[in-house]
Write a protein that binds this DNA or RNA. Sequence first.
DNA 1: AAACTTAGTGTAAAAAATACACTTACTAAA
DNA 2: TTTAGTAAGTGTATTTTTTACACTAAGTTT
Lengths: 232, 232
Amino acid sequence: MESRYAKINVSVDNVIFGWDGEHLNILLIEQKRAPKNVHLSPRLAIPGDLVLVEEGLDDAANRILKELTKLEGIYLRQFEAFGDPSRVKEEKDQDWLKAFREDPDAHVITVAYFSLVRMDLVNPEASSFASNTLWVEMHNIPDLAFDHNRIIDKALRRLRQNVEQKSIGFELLPEKFTLTQIQSLYEAILDKKLDKRNFRKSIKKLDTIIPLNEKQVGVTHKPGQLFEYKPS
Amino acid sequence: MESRYAKINVSVDNVIFGWDGEHLNILLIEQKRAPKNVHLSPRLAIPGDLVLVEEGLDDAANRILKELTKLEGIYLRQFEAFGDPSRVKEEKDQDWLKAFREDPDAHVITVAYFSLVRMDLVNPEASSFASNTLWVEMHNIPDLAFDHNRIIDKALRRLRQNVEQKSIGFELLPEKFTLTQIQSLYEAILDKKLDKRNFRKSIKKLDTIIPLNEKQVGVTHKPGQLFEYKPS
DNA sequence: AAACTTAGTGTAAAAAATACACTTACTAAA
DNA sequence: TTTAGTAAGTGTATTTTTTACACTAAGTTT
């Protein structure tokens, strides 16, 4: 039956941020190649998948995250839906769509999430929708599939907003961390230097960051006090 | 062909805020009744519609707004997508779905927008998806269809955030307005009293609000200076 | 013991936010 | 034409928040 309404595919895409102590990274997947293109170098994309029957958006985002990282209970935040029909019309993406989508010409709207994970907990591996996964430094993100560069850009903006308000970001750190480690992370996310004393003052005001009676070990200088994050 | 992926319906819902000089209002529609239910009092809903073939999300939101109000170029902001399958499973909504949707059991995700319009420019009237439209004061919103009460709640939160930063809201006012009028509006949106002198100071700092050489007319007291809003 | 490295700390100045009360300009009623 | 009523318009002092800034302490390595 013909209809004026679109048979729309809905997908969820997930911008997964990770922190290696020095740089902000993003988890990308290598798209599986269409048979005719197996000889080409794979295109990178942010992980995502179509939403399943009777699956909620948050559930889909969690499923993708879990399939890729085996992690559950991770910080996940929906930030925007992208639905311009042109987003799946670019030439570069046609082969992939024809090879892997039941309806390659369908209008696809995607609901974008970002999440924060500790890089050391993730062992990137292949999954049902990725032939390979890898961490890429924020500053080295290449041209990605569809409008994924734009989606990352929006995700980063939102992350920065939240970080400016000091409401999130601690999820990226190991269980126990020093104030200097938080500061490095914030500086990487915001891409600017922060004043040490003022930064410490502001973090110590948060009652979600609690001081431990422990010191950093294994460093070749004065060890810092350790703190932990207790989400409120 | 059976598929593990959902045949999902995508709709756009629009929380349309209006200001009558005293209260914040929301434009609601009376849902058309299923034939078997024409005798029942109509259920109210926020305006929305399924996204059309090859239509972008912003386009759909604008289409809905225009069909309902005849207005174009209105402030419109996407704020969240709602996609829990249970949102279209409530008993109260089944008759309507069966009567007006090709696939009443489909999972429907909706992308929600809010917009700000001048109430005096709107002449609510029937449209293709509404048998009637009406303004309802924010504080008197009844039980609505689907999860629309929740959507309004989220829209109001977002509006408040933006208003606290003084970045929006002026779209609700007539072309020329006094500082006191802005203040009343802000007080209604934020649901709290503001200090007159401090409020004026803060508004006068904005270079999007420009003073005119004109005074209010037709009031029975000292007339206020008029200002206009020039979006940057 | 000396050199190196990062941790850790306080104060003063500037900027932003808040609290607060009287005079002015106009209309309507006496 | 005076009086009463109504909202407009205005400045300062106080508190809070934000910023700028430099040295000592605790550990490790040579």
